[in-house]
Amino acid sequence: MSSPLLSACRVTKRFGGRTACHDVSFDLWPGEVLGIVGESGSGKTTLLNCLAGRLVPDGGSVAYETRSAGIVDVHHLSEARRRLLARTEWGFVNQDAREGLRMGVSAGANIGERLMAVGARHYGEIRGQAIDWMARVEIDADRIDDRPTTYSGGMRQRLQIARNLVSNPRLVFMDEPTGGLDVSVQARILDLLRGLVEGLHLSAVLVTHDLGVARLLTHRLMVMQGGAVVEQGLTDQVLDDPQHPYTQMLVASILPV
């Protein structure tokens, strides 16, 4: 609880004349899962990409507390150091698993690649860990040599999660990790993510438009509208006692089951 793991300060990103995200500030503490909710086009994904160093903001800064090298400014790192950070201390789970996986190589190689990036060289150990992670994300070990092109959407997403978590990251960015999947597949992935985040004491920033997903996985919520954060707080408080007109409208729009 000593200092934040990730700290965003007045992050602003424009595309041409349009402001995609405006003046966003927050601290993420170790072990916290922060949800970013809002409708399509509210700037959620742009913000996530700025936080993860995939986009360079036009204003503001993002600071990250590394394992051993102190606090760094994410956007002032060299490209090589940023990539290293992204492979070792961070994970990034894309909505479309095809963007987060290498579709042309086997599942085992997809998992092993992250391990090799952090220095693993022993083939047997890498394969052993890959098999272990296949089991943890509930994929049959005998599918290890198959390419993800032969996997279902839900399996691909679970493989992408395994690929991201095998190198023991501290911070995981997730962009609609259950978007576009059947509800039964979605439930399996939510359950898996819940267990992993809790068991590995991960910190995470999760973008979703699904308030049910946010309630299940996050501790805190930021509600975005038109590129700005209109409300933030404890997840259950924002959902049960929303203050801002837009949040009240969002919460009132959930279909009861």
Binding site: G233, L234, D236, Q237, D240, D241, Q243
Partner: peptide
Amino acid sequence: LRSLYGNYR
């Protein structure tokens, strides 16, 4: 009760 728990602000 919910205010005491911080569920309501």
